[in-house]
């Protein structure tokens, strides 16, 4: 009886060994899918933040420079009316994506009567 069971087992092991490549292939697919999902859920996206920064700048303000990363942004902007900058800061703060807005510098170009402002914002 034991010999019969051993013989049966040998046949089964032989059959399982014939599936070794399938197991390897299935494992590769599974590993890759799991890793893809892991990376997909762990990566930080910036497109919403870029949209937020650019969309709030109205047509009355002109953008010169933008630096942005996951932590925050800084912009160099210019415009003819000082109230437009105040409105921009209010829009940024009201949308709730930033924790603070700091005015780094503000100057008036008297030749063209244009205000040049540098703002910095930290994302929440």
């Amino acid at each position: 009886m034991i010999q019969y069971q051993k013989g049966w087992q040998s046949k089964l092991v032989e059959e399982i060994e014939s599936y070794s490549d399938i197991e390897e292939k299935a494992k590769r697919i599974s590993d890759k899918t799991i890793t893809y999902k892991k990376f997909l859920s762990s990566r930080f996206l910036i497109s919403d933040k870029v949209d937020y920064v650019l969309d709030n700048i109205g047509p009355e303000i002109e953008l010169s420079n933008l630096d942005i990363n996951q932590q925050g942004f800084s912009i160099s902007i210019s415009g003819k009316d000082a109230i437009d900058f105040t409105n921009l800061i209010v829009r940024y703060l009201e949308d709730g994506l930033v924790s603070e807005i700091v005015i780094n510098s503000a100057s008036l170009d008297k030749s063209g009567n244009i205000y040049k402002v540098m703002l910095r914002g930290n994302f929440k």
């Binding site: 990566r43 996206l45 910036i46």
Partner: peptide
């Protein structure tokens, strides 16, 4: 870039008009 087939994460952008 973020929707491309490869999994990209934009770290920083410096944009000058």
């Amino acid at each position: 870039l973020e929707e491309s087939k490869k999994l990209n994460e934009i770290q920083s952008i410096r944009y000058s008009v």
